[in-house]
Design a binder for these strands. Structure first.
Lengths: 119, 119
DNA sequence: GGCATAACCGACCATTCCGCTAGGATTTCC
DNA sequence: GGAAATCCTAGCGGAATGGTCGGTTATGCC
């Protein structure tokens, strides 16, 4: 219950687009079919991705979507952010220096951690 | 939009309890006052924390709550999990080995990533 | 030109979750 | 006995989630 299906669908969508190696655009309907996702819902998601340039669109017959950038230049975080809105966890929840997800629970750290956010 | 206020309130609560160095329990009302949080809402949260043993309670007058374990043995993740429910982001969203939040976007990795979850 | 195809756009809708309140019951200390 | 506190259950308004639907526009192909 941390990421909604939007993020998941979005990633799936991007992955599906990334599979298409030649420049040909992929119709959203084939993505929906492949991933078993509701087409009309995907439309909304892909619209957001287009607005931030993560995908490009080609209208009309034989149109579709393709990645806006080479696949290996796209980070998953971007996709999630574009769909989920600004990610603002809890301020003290930046991945700690060593990569572990837990903030220092010493008295000083706490003082800062508990109050910094609001006042 | 990643963690709800539950997680935040819960952490604040735990921090507040952690401040009390002697074993005396802290009344929820004082926590609510200190942190400017609604008391009756905190009751629900602390109930969950109690069920998983993160806090202990003392009923009756001059009762209250104290940490179920020494403060430095409690990880923030535990608190969040207890309140937010099982954390099940997207399967491929485990913090990557190096600590960076992005899953390998190579064709093989994607194959696994996109389909592993559902089928 | 016409038609199928597909991206676009906006409104709506049911359900669930979030944050919170209310009211009471129970336990404990003085 | 009464105040102080935890405990428990029920509900509620608003927002977000996850969709659907209908229609409009653009484009390739016959």
């Amino acid at each position: 219950m941390l990421f909604s299906t939007r993020a998941e669908y979005g990633v799936r969508l991007m992955v599906e687009l990334g599979r298409q190696e030649d420049g040909a655009p992929v119709a959203l309907s084939t993505v929906a079919e492949n991933e078993r996702l509701p087409l009309s819902y995907l439309e909304h998601l892909v619209a957001k991705l287009r607005k931030v340039g993560l995908v490009e669109s080609q209208r009309g017959a034989h149109g579709g979507y393709r990645l806006g950038r080479p696949a290996d230049e796209i980070e998953m975080l971007e996709v999630v952010q574009a769909l989920e809105g600004a990610i603002a966890p809890m301020e003290c929840f930046h991945p700690a220096p060593e990569g572990k997800v837990s903030c220092s629970h010493e008295t000083d750290g706490d003082q800062a951690c508990a109050t910094k956010l609001l006042w």
